[in-house]
């Protein structure tokens, strides 16, 4: 429980929102698991580099380009908790939660694929939705829609 002390916490409706620092990510998850949040139901990321409004964060949280968001569920309390942590834009790295919540395996791979955030300690951090040799990370805000030519081959008889 100690790792959760001092973490900025707010209530949003029925959901508890906590804002741990990126370096405490693993320890926070460990504390949450010990505290009865038995399922990590979802983990995703947001690229805030093009956000058009002021970031609404607790005072002592320093905004960064990426935010990793994990949703936890406690079956016992029938409650939800959302942890949001700031991850720097250059060489984004954060610890993987696979050891504590094995269910985040493919979700973390999806974040790696879509945002290029590296999860240290993940057993198989590889692209999941895009082809393995794909360059770039589609859900980053600087990846434009339609900027890549469609890879259809012209029929062999076509004059080019």
């Amino acid at each position: 429980m100690s790792s959760l002390d001092g973490v900025p916490t707010i209530m949003s409706g029925d959901t508890t929102l906590i804002f741990p620092a990126a370096e405490d990510w693993y320890a926070t998850a460990e504390a949450l698991f010990a505290d009865g949040w038995n399922v990590c139901v979802d983990i995703t990321a947001v690229d805030y580099s093009a956000y058009g409004a002021p970031r609404n964060l607790p005072e002592d949280v320093q905004p960064e380009r990426f935010e990793v968001v994990a949703n936890f569920l406690s079956h016992e309390r029938r409650a939800r908790l959302r942890a949001r942590t700031q991850v720097s834009g250059d060489a984004p790295t954060i610890e993987s939660l696979v050891m504590i919540y094995p269910g985040v395996d493919t979700l973390e791979r999806e974040i790696f694929d879509m945002f290029g955030i590296t999860f240290t300690g993940h057993p198989d951090l590889s692209r999941i939705l895009m082809p393995e040799d794909w360059v770039g990370h589609p859900l980053r805000k600087d990846a434009a829609v339609g900027s890549i030519p469609v890879q259809f081959k012209a029929p062999s008889t076509a004059q080019r």
């Binding site: 139901v41 979802d42 690229d47 968001v69 949703n71 859900l139």
Partner: peptide, 23 residues
């Protein structure tokens, strides 16, 4: 699940669907 981030505009800033099949 559906996770939406809005920046006050008419389009979602980010929309994520937590698909049960995927997990």
């Amino acid at each position: 699940g559906c996770y939406i981030v809005s920046d006050g505009g008419p389009k979602p800033y980010r929309m994520h669907i937590r698909g049960p099949s995927f997990v």
